[in-house]
């Protein structure tokens, strides 16, 4: 079947099967390889993308069901340079091997849009569906708090100006 997917604001026509999952479309058809396959069972979160602003595991999300939604991938949020959370992840050392990183960036992007001033507990709970085997998470949490702080400071600065 042919469907139209709106990925990072661009409509793409793709040929899929009814059983195709979104991750395979993104990686194999659209060559957006930022989302990673870590388990294909919704346990690790490396394949996280946003659908209508909510993080989902694209490895078990029906591609056909994603028609008529807004799909955002790590490529999309990186289009205009590093976002606040991406910058903070680099600066704080929230990255090691990097394989979980795009998924974690997507989850935290959703978190910061919904909660501009999260607590460390909020961040940890938001990451329940994202496994990082390398970092022990501390620097990912501190990166998120830093990104939030920077964004709020920027906003205050903008309001002042």
């Amino acid at each position: 079947m042919k469907i139209n997917l709106k990925v990072n604001g661009i409509l793409e026509e793709v040929e899929i099967e009814a059983s195709t999952v979104l991750l395979d479309v993104l990686r194999d058809k659209l060559h957006l390889t930022g989302a990673k396959e870590g388990c294909r069972e919704g346990e690790c979160g490396a394949c996280t993308v946003l659908i209508d602003g909510q993080p989902v595991d694209s490895c078990l999300y029906s591609a056909a069901a994603a028609a008529n939604t807004e799909i955002e991938t790590v490529e999309g949020i990186s289009a205009n340079g590093l976002s606040a959370i991406q910058k903070a992840m680099v600066e704080e050392g929230g990255i090691q091997c990097g394989f979980c990183t795009p998924g974690i960036v997507m989850t935290l992007t959703a978190l910061l849009r919904q909660n501009a001033d999260p607590t460390p507990k909020d961040v940890a709970a938001a990451l329940n569906g994202n496994i990082c085997r390398c970092t022990g998470y501390s620097r990912i949490v501190s990166a998120t708090l830093k990104a939030a702080k920077n964004a709020m400071a920027q906003k205050a600065g903008d309001a002042h100006a």
Binding site: G42, I51, Q54, V56, Y61, T107, A126, N128, G129
Partner: peptide
């Protein structure tokens, strides 16, 4: 039930 990703959908 699972993580945020599962709870979203």
């Amino acid at each position: 039930v699972g993580g945020w990703q599962t709870q979203s959908v």
